[in-house]
């Protein structure tokens, strides 16, 4: 396997300018989506078919630290063990050698199984194309030796793109620095989450729940019962029933060579 290429996002350097959002829209040729004013700075509540990334604004009050205002760039986490890939009945998802989860719109039939399987709720249905869409980690750009559009545009250096192992070391050093400089709960997110981690690394200045991230993201039991048990095994009950019927069809006619059944019942 080739070396994993990852996007590192350092919350402590983010100014929430939303350059990444605009660059993403521009690079992927996505139209603007206007949402009504919700009383905060967020332009979008959640990702949608035409918005692959957005900045979340999370306010919370802490009895010790007072009011905290957290920013978070939110998009596909490119899980290394991707749930969307498992549930897709058309195998529209694939993983690139360097770790991006790519969704092929030509194969997509818009069933939205992935939307509800994703632990982060990222893939979204787009009516215009009748397909699901999500962040591509700009794989066309990356494979041409460029950086993803959001990284390219980030003015404050909050976004970095590179090899995952190198960026993890960088993130660990940054967390150590943050913990010593006023953010004692600073942490890395995406290193080991969901077992094998995600191909998107966050450096957070506080615990994940303060950024509305799932603290311990899990694959829903519904998903694995469905994919690992029902789909491969339970379905065999149907051919068994058909086979038994076929056997019965033959044995009935072999044993009852006369036609006593049809005439007057068994007697």
């Amino acid at each position: 396997m080739a070396r994993l290429m990852t996007n590192l996002y350092d919350v402590s350097k983010c100014t929430a300018c939303r350059g990444c959002l605009v660059a993403c829209k521009d690079s992927n040729q996505l139209p603007a989506v206007m949402e009504p004013f919700k009383g905060n700075y967020a332009t979008h509540e959640d990702t949608n078919g035409n918005t692959y990334t957005l900045i979340r604004f999370i306010e919370h009050e802490d009895p010790v630290d007072g009011v905290r205002w957290n920013f978070l760039k939110y998009q596909c986490m490119h899980c290394l063990d991707a749930e969307c890939m498992k549930v897709c009945p058309k195998k529209a998802y694939r993983k690139t050698e360097w770790g991006a989860t790519i969704h092929d719109e030509d194969k997509c039939i818009g069933c939205q199984y992935c939307t509800y399987a994703c632990p982060f709720g990222i893939p979204k249905y787009r009516t215009r194309t009748d397909t699901v869409t999500k962040c591509t980690l700009c794989y066309e750009r990356v494979e041409e030796g460029l950086k993803p559009a959001c990284v390219r545009t980030c003015p404050s250096g909050a976004l970095t793109f590179g090899y995952r192992d190198e960026l993890l070391q960088q993130a660990e050093a940054r967390v150590k620095f943050l913990r010593a400089n006023g953010f004692p709960r600073a942490t890395i997110y995406g290193k080991l989450e969901l077992g094998s981690g995600t191909n998107k690394i966050y450096v957070l200045t506080d615990t994940p729940d303060k950024f509305n991230l799932p603290v311990d993201p899990k694959v829903s039991a519904n998903t694995w019962v469905w994919q690992d048990w029902i789909k491969p095994y339970a379905g065999w009950l149907i051919p068994v029933a058909l086979g038994a019927s076929a056997v019965s069809f033959v044995t009935n006619r072999l044993i009852n060579k006369g036609d006593d059944h049809a005439k007057g019942g068994h007697e």
Partner: peptide, 30 residues
């Protein structure tokens, strides 16, 4: 999310029954 496995499982059990029912209600001599 819960509806997906339920829909599949209910499909399997009902189809199982429909197969048997269809056979017994027609081609089974008795």
């Amino acid at each position: 999310r819960f509806s997906y496995p339920v829909h599949d499982l209910a499909m399997i059990f009902s189809t199982l029954m429909v197969c048997m029912h269809g056979f017994l209600g027609s081609f089974h001599l008795g």
